[in-house]
Design a protein around this nucleic acid. Structure first.
Length: 424
RNA sequence: GGAGAGGUCGCAUAGUGGUCUAGUGCGCCGCACUCGAAAUGCGGUAAGGGGCAACUCUUCGAGGGUUCGAAUCCCUCCCUCUCCGCCA
């Protein structure tokens, strides 16, 4: 959602921004048309209501004075006005709903520092950390390593739930649990986030707040109660403060939470189907920040380095990509992707997106702060990033630390959690 | 799942059809008194929308209804609490 005043006063600026994302700019004209109608009807309604209130009040006064006849007479004269008010209110409600529908469809505008570009081929590599591992043998893909050591079982996962659901077993299950425990500990103790453990289910209001609804319902698992399994802890974490006014003195607020994530991956059939690269249920640590507008871009930089610090602690080779406007997606203003090198599959794997949404989500979720006592509430800026997603990290660890003898050395930071130095 | 009680402006409460433009207390802010503080007194203290403005509208958990008029009456839903049942 964008600022209404911005749309009214600077529609060309908005068109320019949406154009940079290569999205449909005609929304702006739709908005302006509906908004014009809405405001016209709104003031007509308001006037009619005021008139109605005056008459009602005077009837009340007459009744109080015992002038029953005059009161009855006044009642008789209200019918036409009452119908008019009802008609106007109905029309206003329709337009309000239309306006809301249009507003919810708006993408966010890219920040001025976000580079131009059409798609992922025009993203920019910002920095690279570490070196690709050297092997004096042919490194195996994680699914082969996992099979040898019975770390997870895709066939049985599919039998239990369906394809894309993973059954982790033995030391493989333990490694899975170790990874998210380690990362939650790391983010809360090293990087100063408040640990939270959220519900895995969210309602419509929460999903609208983050921007998953109304557009992306097909990507979500839905329960019979009109509740949804969360696609990411971003949803519950962001909605912690929905419809609240925060104290400016408390910002920046940083929360980190682990959750299972559920994605139907509608339309992704056939892509990355092997191993752990794309699954319907996975684990992820999510980092969310609520900031003052003036702080959000500094906080984006530190958010990215918070996500990176986990990878550094594990000794993995990764790079940071800045997304161009065309690849940014609808919600973001600026975004860094973290990609992990997986030597077995020979590819960079996206394991985190660190995004500044500015006030896009806070407008949808109505999350504000009061800069100082007596001042008007303003929308906070909201940022989030994975810190990080488990399955691709799991895959990269198996592939990066595999040995000639087929074993896998457990990174030192993980050993207290896994309990062994080596798998196999 | 069953029965009951509730949801009011930060908190606590009052309000069962008409100056409720929602009262009072606490908290908070300002002023006065004070060397200063406490106490006390006076004033202020929700959000959103429309309008250049004066002003006005909406919101008493949410939505609908009855009425000239709804915090108040009716219906549906959500949430909280108590008891019972079931249950990791």
């Amino acid at each position: 959602m964008l600022d209404r005043d911005l749309l009214r006063q600077h529609p060309d600026f908005v068109r320019l921004g949406i154009g940079r994302k290569h999205l449909d700019v005609s929304l702006v004209d739709t908005f302006l048309a509906v908004d014009g109608d809405y405001r016209k009807v709104r003031s007509e309604t308001s006037e009619a209501q005021a008139e109605m209130n005056r008459i009602s009040k005077s009837i009340g006064a007459l009744m109080g004075q015992g002038k029953k006849d005059e009161a009855e007479q006044a009642k008789g004269q209200t019918k036409e006005l009452k119908d008019r008010v009802a008609a106007l209110e109905t029309r206003e409600r329709e337009l309000e709903q239309q306006l809301r529908d249009v507003e919810l469809q708006f993408p966010n505008l890219p920040h001025e520092s976000t580079p131009n570009g059409k798609d992922e081929t025009e993203n920019v590599v910002i920095r690279t950390w570490g070196e690709p591992q050297k092997f004096d043998f042919e490194p195996q893909a994680h699914w082969d390593i996992a099979e040898r050591h019975k770390l997870f079982d895709l066939a049985r996962g599919a039998k239990i739930a369906g394809s894309g659901f993973v059954l982790y077993t033995g030391l493989g299950a333990k490694l899975q649990r170790a990874l998210f425990s380690f990362m939650v500990d790391f983010q809360s103790t090293q990087n100063g986030y408040t640990e939270v453990f959220p519900p895995y289910i969210s309602n419509r209001a929460s999903l609208i707040g983050t921007g998953n609804l109304p557009k992306f319902e097909d990507d979500l698992y839905k329960t019979t109660d009109d509740l949804f399994l969360i696609p990411t802890a971003e949803v519950p974490l962001t909605n912690i403060y929905r419809d609240e006014i925060l104290d400016g003195a408390d910002l920046t607020i940083k929360v980190a939470g682990y959750s299972a994530c559920f994605r139907r991956e509608a339309g992704a059939a056939g892509k990355d189907t092997r191993g752990l690269l794309r699954v319907h249920q996975f684990d992820k640590i999510e980092l969310v920040k609520f900031t003052k507008p003036e702080d959000s871009y500094d906080e984006l930089e530190s958010l990215a380095s918070d996500a990176e610090s986990v990878l550094q602690a594990l000794g993995l080779h990764y790079r940071v990509i800045e997304l161009c406007a065309g690849d940014l997606g609808a919600k973001g203003a600026k975004c860094y992707d973290l990609e992990l090198w997986a030597p077995g599959v020979g590819r960079w794997l996206e394991i985190s997106s660190c995004t500044n949404f500015e006030a896009y989500q806070s407008r949808r979720a109505n999350i504000r702060y009061r800069p100082a006592q007596g001042e008007k509430p303003q929308f906070v800026h909201i940022l989030n990033g994975s810190g990080v997603a488990v399955p691709r990290l799991y895959a990269a660890i198996l592939e990066s630390f595999q040995q000639a003898d087929g074993s896998v050395v457990v990174p030192e930071a993980l050993r207290p959690y896994v309990g062994v130095e080596r798998i196999g």
